[in-house]
């Protein structure tokens, strides 16, 4: 919907004759430049963890930290450059539902790991 908002505005822009809407829509369309930047950043953020793992540059916690940071950054890049989350208009329902989903996600994954770390049967 982050995309949808702008697209609909963009295509209807001059029909409405509202300058404000139009320019906002045009900006929010997502340009080729924006997609290209997102694509290049994603490739870089895929190559960094690959190099770390294939060349054994780091070990243990440091390697896991780099891998996870690169993955989270790439998630952010896709959200901002491909899914246009930043360009959503207020009220930002897309962002709110996303944050809600991420809270549940972190609770499920983090909670499972925490509980099972102390489970003698599984380990």
């Amino acid at each position: 919907m982050a995309q949808g908002t702008q697209n609909t505005h963009g295509s209807h822009g001059h029909g409405h004759g509202e300058g404000g809407h139009h320019s906002e829509g045009a900006h929010a369309h997502g340009s080729l430049k924006q997609y290209a930047i997102g694509f290049v950043l994603s490739i870089i953020l895929t190559i960094i963890p690959l190099m770390v793992v294939l060349n054994d540059l780091l070990e243990g916690a440091a390697a896991i930290a780099v891998l996870l940071i690169a993955a989270v950054l790439q998630f952010a890049v896709q959200l901002l450059f491909f899914m246009h989350l930043r360009e959503e208009q207020k009220p930002r329902y897309n962002l709110m539902t996303l944050i809600f989903g991420l809270v549940i996600l972190v609770t499920i994954v983090g909670g499972s790991m925490w509980i099972m770390a102390y489970n003698g049967v599984v380990n």
Binding site: Q3, N7, G10, S11, H29, G30, S31, L32, Y35, G38, F39, S42, F82
Partner: peptide, 11 residues
């Protein structure tokens, strides 16, 4: 990326 290019072409 190419699905994004599809959206750009559509716009």
């Amino acid at each position: 990326f190419t699905s994004g290019l599809a959206v750009l072409a559509m716009n």
